[in-house]
């Protein structure tokens, strides 16, 4: 069976050539990934491996930088840099802060993903 990334040669529809300018959070995610990579904690191979391990469902459902972020989270836990409990607690804390500042406006279906 093909891994979720391994899509070369599969049938697909037309290519959408439109340009997408990265928004603020995507740039932040890119910079975060680069900073962690510069510490030797996440190579391109490790990133790809982590993204692949998210599975077929996640590949179809998540956007590009959502996959990167999920992979970074996984990699930090597997490397022993962070624990899942620490991440979950921090996510709850950040969420609460964003609620208080009025910056949180979750899209449909997003609240259910929170730990």
């Amino acid at each position: 069976m093909r891994s979720p990334q391994d899509i070369g040669g599969l049938p697909e529809g037309p290519v959408d050539p439109s340009e997408h300018t990265l928004n603020f959070w995507e740039k932040q995610a890119d910079g975060l990934r680069a900073a962690v990579g510069s510490k030797g904690l996440m190579s391109s191979h490790e990133s790809r491996r982590a993204i692949e391990s998210l599975g077929h469902d996640a590949m179809g459902r998540l956007t590009y930088y959502e996959r990167w972020t999920a992979a970074l989270s996984l990699q930090m836990v597997e490397r022993g840099v962070l624990t899942q409990d620490e991440i979950d607690a921090k996510v709850a804390q950040v969420r609460q802060r964003l609620v208080e500042t009025g910056e949180l406006e979750l899209s449909a279906g997003e609240a259910e993903k929170l730990p």
Binding site: N23, F24, W25, Q28, A29, L32, A35, V36, L62, T63, Y65, E66, T69, A70, L72, S73, M76, V81, L82, E86, I87, K90, V91, Q93, V94, R95, L98, E103, L104, E105, L106, S107, E110, A111, K113, L114
Partner: peptide, 19 residues
């Protein structure tokens, strides 16, 4: 952006702050 819209955006902020 004015708002945070997704779980993964929250996760990204959380990872950055923890690291």
């Amino acid at each position: 952006d004015d708002k945070v819209h997704s779980y993964h955006q929250i996760l990204s902020i959380a990872l950055k702050e923890l690291l």
